[in-house]
Design a protein around this nucleic acid. Structure first.
Length: 336
DNA sequence: GCGCGAATAT
DNA sequence: TATATTCGCG
């Protein structure tokens, strides 16, 4: 299926899906189909600050006092070695993806409607790959803030491969270690919701969702588990609609303002500076152009104003936003 | 055998 | 609770 689109340079790809937000998506989509990827990169580079203008890696971007004032955890400082490693990993993964092109049927249909600028899998390098997988109890989940303010090379996204870093060389079949426990970050969850809401209830099955999410390392089992939880959630809120108003729309639980309101914020005020607890980068999610028959009413949510496609608020609880709780859990417990 | 989904386990 | 794993079924 990759023959459907002219290929772009690797660098352009990396930059595109790392830096795109909803504000720049259209522009990139326009120029994404031509062969000018490398040229565009050069143009961008021409406008980039020189090395002297950049803050050294060893220096903090935010003064500790200011960080604490906004309850922002101090991000661990990165070294050039970290940056180098992250860059190497990004490049190698991009190469790998250009080699083996997936051609699953649903994904193929999906890709046809994707811009070539975002045609690669979501594998946005994270310097700290503990973000999506929590290997042990001693490893705390990455803070949403740190999740946003990643240091290093191409890491500004929220999604990275759920795989832990393969520290050693090519570990082929000698992998006996179990896959670490996955963590559904808000970004992954949003992607999940975007895909599910654009599939009918008929097509929203684990394998299809997995393929459309296009996240490296994400397994069908991962999705199935999450989907099961989502269905339980749907069942719950549907069965609760006639009970007390607090049962399904308790403002205490109707939160996740970061993700839920983020989309709308981007649409209305694209240039507005993000608050520390917001996820600053929109994940390119071009399933909006999918030809699927949308199952209206299957999932709670509204409609994308730009194209009329249904969407689901990321808290799956409707449009209430009382702005108190951040991002977790995705599925709120029944208010008992 | 594959994949789904409910049940069960960790 | 969140996620993984198992298991029966089509």
């Amino acid at each position: 299926m990759e023959g459907d689109f002219p290929e772009m340079g690797e660098e352009a790809d990396a930059i595109d899906f790392d830096l795109l937000d909803s504000g720049t998506l259209e522009k990139a989509v326009e120029g994404g189909g031509d062969e000018g990827g490398e040229r565009r990169v050069l143009e961008w580079e021409a406008g980039l600050p020189s090395g002297e203008d950049l803050t050294p890696l060893s220096q903090m971007l935010i003064p500790p006092v200011l960080a604490s004032a906004f309850s922002m955890p101090l991000v661990e400082l990165k070294t050039m070695l970290d940056v180098h490693h992250a860059a190497q990993h990004t490049i190698s993964n991009l190469r790998r993806h250009h080699q083996n092109s997936a051609s699953g049927h649903p994904a193929a249909t999906y890709k046809r409607y994707k811009s070539s600028a975002t045609d690669d899998r979501v594998l946005l390098e994270s310097v700290d790959r503990k973000e999506c997988f929590n290997s042990g109890k001693d490893v705390p989940m990455m803070d949403p803030v740190a999740d946003s303010f990643v240091t290093g090379t191409a890491v500004i996204e929220g999604i990275s491969s759920p795989f832990p870093a393969e520290n050693s060389v090519e570990d082929n079949s000698t992998r006996t270690s179990k896959r670490p426990r996955m963590v559904w970050t808000p970004q992954l969850h949003k992607r999940f919701m975007d895909v599910v809401s654009h599939l009918g209830i008929k097509n929203a099955v684990p394998k299809t969702i997995m393929q459309l999410m296009n996240v490296e390392g994400l397994t069908r089992e991962n999705v199935a588990s999450h989907l099961q939880k989502y269905r339980l959630y749907l069942k719950r809120i549907q069965g609760d609609t006639d009970e007390g108003p607090s049962s399904s729309f308790d403002p205490l639980f109707a939160s996740m303002p970061v993700l839920q309101s983020f989309h709308e914020q981007q649409l209305q005020q694209p240039m507005q500076m993000q608050m520390p607890y917001t996820v600053p980068v929109m994940i390119p999610m071009p399933v909006y152009g999918m030809p699927h028959h949308h199952a209206h009413g299957v999932v709670p949510g509204g409609v994308f104003p730009e194209n009329g496609h249904p969407y689901v608020p990321n808290n799956w609880l409707g449009s209430n936003n009382f702005g108190s709780v951040v991002s977790y859990p995705h599925f709120f417990p029944k208010n008992t």
